[in-house]
Design a protein around this nucleic acid. Structure first.
Lengths: 163, 163
DNA sequence: TATTGTTATACTCTATAACTATA
DNA sequence: TATAGTTATAGAGTATAACAATA
């Protein structure tokens, strides 16, 4: 019997219309493909980053803290689509390890700006190399042009209203 | 001060190379964009499906059970990237509600083929409409051609080695 | 010996509500 | 009155290991 994976190929492009109209096909869903691609990406990313004592989420916080935007915890939460309370725990952990520090925002004493330390930047630099090579493995089947294309399309879904 | 979101636009395409080389930029990461896009997609999907007493994962199982592939629990797990033990719980739940049934595979008595009941197909039909409209809202900014393009690119990441 | 489904368990992630200090 | 950060808690998702039935 043909497996469910085998059917993927048939359905992708040139299957006769009649065979697609019978029932909703999951494998045509952008949402489903997004979920599966993300699951693979997350697993590969966590695996690659574990060497450096990081996971995808802590790596993301560290990377943003190393940026030039003087990002507050609130902005971090919004950008990473995390609840502010989750950011507290992530920032705590990275701060204990001396990779980032909280700096009160002079303009708004409620807010903490999160900034990478020199140690943090050093860890980030090597971790980023691992992360990139894991990412490369993920879309090794895509050409450079296709990667750019995918990045742009994803950005418009991930950040609607920007650009 | 420019927010981290504001910087997104600048970095997307034509930022001078010098400003990108300073540190790794999260917003250029396919992995990060995948995670954020998926988070939005998952939230929208779960919200849309909750009306029908489903979530994205149970909907996925139901949709595959309604397909013509006579899919085993093992195949379900592989396709949805879930552990077989998680599939047990999802199938249990849908079976209790009478939406699917387990049918022993005559060819391999270890395996259960999961099949949607008529009730299950009816629920799926209306739930699918909700799911599709939630998905549409997600990529409303994309043209039809871009949606096809994105689907194809995602498929190659989500199912490496197929096609 | 290996695989399918199952049970059990622990850990991570997600979602909510409430509190404090500032605005 | 609203917002930034924090604490606490519960529910959903993820990862592993072990076991019975069958291959």
């Amino acid at each position: 019997m043909m497996s469910i994976f085998g059917r993927l190929v048939l359905m992708s492009n040139d299957a006769p219309e009649a065979s697609r109209a019978v029932e909703p096909e999951l494998s045509d869903d952008i949402s489903f493909l997004l979920a599966r691609a993300n699951a693979l990406s997350l697993a590969a990313g966590n695996s690659a980053l574990s060497t450096h004592g990081l996971r995808v989420r802590s790596y993301s916080v560290l990377a943003l803290a190393a940026g030039r935007s003087r990002t507050s915890q609130r902005e971090l939460a919004e950008f990473l689509r995390l609840d502010p309370s989750q950011v507290v725990a992530l920032v705590d952990e990275l701060q204990v390890r001396g990779l980032i520090r909280r700096e009160p925002d002079p303009a708004d004493r409620r807010a903490n700006v999160v900034i990478a330390t020199d140690d943090g930047r050093a860890v980030l630099a090597v971790a980023a190399a691992s992360a990139r090579s894991a990412e490369r493995a993920l879309h090794v089947g895509l050409s450079a042009a296709e990667r750019v294309q995918l990045t742009e399309l994803l950005r418009r879904i991930a950040f609607p209203g920007v650009g």
